[in-house]
């Protein structure tokens, strides 16, 4: 159906973002394809060292992931930050990625955790995209009109993983004005395989390689964390909007990075 109607059609998963846009008459699809009837599309599986997130896995489903290990802990914590309970009961992981709000927790997580997305078109079949290449600009992705995310695969994390997440909002449940997720391995006294990304700051979430390099193979200290926060704050090019102008967002980026790093060290 999607290949038939292309631009006129939209896929409806949780609907927590698409429906209000339609109510406001900002989006006006002629065809709306409800995915909620797809069988067995809500249960995650694990294979080849990856968590495989199906299209109808909802935010609230991450609260109690059956898989043990750090990845589940991280995703469970992040899911608690998404909107409020009624939103989490409906909204989906894959839907959030397709919606591509730069402040969305799952967009940041998929980039930082190196998720790979399987997208499928009726005519061209399945292709894989790295999450980092998926987000093009604000609310825009490389998804073609006739494509759908059929799965997100997130690599599992080893037991020695440390992580920290922080998001700065005016109100509980709001989209973050700035957020940070940092993940690394604790190797003796050093941090290795550091991944640090910010969301809600620029048009798309992204990792900050300079910050990762600065942390890699270093001992975690408050002093270092502050320096990294300063570095990230100067490395980003924040957007301006009603809720925060670029200067203020830069301050909030510094706060989010520094808090996420502090939390990783708890």
């Amino acid at each position: 159906m999607l290949s038939q109607h292309g631009d006129d059609a939209r896929l409806l998963a949780g609907g927590q973002s698409l429906v209000p846009t339609m109510t406001a008459r900002l989006a006006r699809p002629t065809v709306l394809i409800d995915l909620n009837r797809i069988e067995n599309a809500a249960l995650p599986t694990i294979s080849a060292g990856r968590l495989r997130v199906p299209p109808l896995m909802r935010h609230a489903d991450f609260e109690r992931l059956s898989a043990n290990g750090p990845l589940s802990t991280i995703l469970a914590e992040l899911s608690g930050h998404i909107g409020h309970l009624p939103i989490r009961m409906r909204g989906t992981f894959c839907g959030a990625l397709a919606h591509a709000d730069p402040a969305a927790e799952w967009c940041l997580a998929s980039v930082v955790l190196g998720a790979e997305l399987l997208v499928r078109s009726m005519t061209r079949g399945v292709r894989n995209i790295e999450a980092a290449d998926f987000f093009e600009s604000m609310m825009d992705t490389t998804l073609a009109d006739d494509e759908m995310i059929i799965e997100a695969q997130i690599p599992l994390l080893p037991a020695a993983t440390r992580y920290g997440f922080s998001e700065i909002c005016r109100r509980s449940g709001d989209y973050a004005l700035a957020s940070t997720l940092v993940v690394y391995q604790r190797d003796e006294d050093e941090m290795t395989k550091v991944r640090l990304g910010v969301g809600g700051v620029e048009a798309t979430p992204r990792r900050i390689p300079e910050a990762e390099a600065m942390l890699e193979r270093r001992e975690p200290t408050r002093q270092l964390f502050r320096e990294v926060a300063d570095l990230v704050a100067s490395a980003v090019d924040p957007v301006s909007d009603l809720a925060a102008d670029a200067d203020y967002r830069r301050e909030l980026t510094r706060a989010a990075v520094s808090r996420a790093l502090d939390r990783s060290f708890r």
Binding site: Q16, V19, L85
Partner: peptide
Amino acid sequence: PIRACLLF
């Protein structure tokens, strides 16, 4: 618990 305005 869900928002009835966000569901058709």
